[in-house]
């Protein structure tokens, strides 16, 4: 039952995002007909093109048509390059996956470490660590990425400042180009995730049955293993999904900083050139992955909670 509820909620969120995406592109002063015709069309021609393309229909009708097209994978063609959007996305998806994967591999252990330090470490470590994690989470990602470039490539010269991927090549051909972008993605996301997880750790430690176990003299390690960690499983999965999602969206910033040809960079340049079909497709794809990930985490938490289900 709860899994169904999770799925329904995720669908509602996606519909809300799709409305936002559609509405944003609706606000543009020029529409697809004007863009395609360039400057050289008469008002009559424009009107004809609009009615042929259904651009005169009410907004709700156009939205539903657009949503149906998106859902069936018909994402149209780029207004700028004229190439099918699907092909553009496909060409970039691999690079972003490689980057996000590398960043996640760093972010997961880092999140756990920071959350432990800020939530459950010995008292003296805890206070300082909590402040440091909160501070790190406050640093704007763009500034953090710029700082990495300034230190590790400009000042120290250890790593390349840009991460150009050769045409037809893979970012994995030159793994050193992935280091800085992955760090720029992973550290802020991990600090953010650790803030969330640290709260869950504190809540788990504050549960009455933990105090009771301490009162009964249960050894620390056993308290942790039996009375605390099981309660962190669901929050940890949720935080993982949140970290992965924020990391994916943040690829836009990091890929732009490092000139890395991925989906994020594609989205940013499409926004800058008002390439509406590309914006719509990439935004909906990212939103689907992020919302789907959160929903999967919720569903996993619901399914594995022994308290759910019919009482025996």
């Amino acid at each position: 039952m709860r899994v169904v509820a999770v799925a329904v909620r995720a669908s509602v969120v996606l519909v809300a995002v799709s409305i936002m995406v559609f509405a944003a592109t609706e606000l543009l002063p020029s529409d697809a007909a004007a863009v395609r015709a360039g400057g050289g069309a008469t008002p009559d021609e424009l009107a004809r093109m609009r009615s042929e393309a259904g651009l005169d229909d009410p907004a709700a009708q156009r939205y539903l048509r657009w949503l149906a097209a998106m859902a069936t994978g018909d994402t149209g063609t780029s207004l700028v390059s004229g190439r099918p959007v699907a092909a553009l996305v496909e060409a970039r998806a691999g690079a972003t996956l490689a980057l996000a994967g590398a960043a996640l591999a760093v972010a997961v252990p880092l999140t756990a470490l920071m959350a432990w330090a800020a939530g459950a470490a010995p008292r003296r470590v805890r206070a300082g660590a909590a402040g440091a994690v909160a501070g790190l989470a406050a640093v704007p990602q763009a500034a953090f990425a710029a700082g990495l470039v300034a230190v590790f490539s400009a000042a120290l010269g250890w790593l390349p400042p840009v991460s150009l991927v050769a045409a037809g090549g893979s970012p994995l051909d030159r793994p050193e180009t992935l280091v800085l972008p992955a760090l720029a993605l992973a550290v802020p996301a991990a600090a953010y995730g650790a803030g969330l997880l640290g709260g869950a750790v504190a809540d788990a430690l504050a549960a009455p049955h933990v105090a009771d176990a301490v009162l009964r003299g249960v050894p620390r390690r056993r308290v942790a293993a039996r009375h605390v960690l099981p309660f962190l499983l669901a929050p940890a999965v949720r935080v993982l999904a949140t970290v992965a999602g924020s990391l994916l969206v943040a690829t836009a910033v990091v890929e732009t900083v490092f000139g890395y040809a991925g989906l994020g960079e594609l989205l940013v340049s499409a926004v800058a050139t008002r390439d509406v079909p590309v914006v719509q497709a990439v935004a909906m794809l990212s939103a689907t992955v992020v919302v789907g990930g959160l929903a999967a985490a919720d569903a996993a938490a619901a399914l594995t909670d022994p308290r759910s289900g019919v009482p025996a």
């Binding site: 909620r9 924020s246 994916l248 836009a252 959160l294």
Partner: peptide, 8 residues
């Protein structure tokens, strides 16, 4: 809360 707002 489930919407990625940098994307928005």
């Amino acid at each position: 809360m489930g919407v990625p707002f940098l994307l928005v």
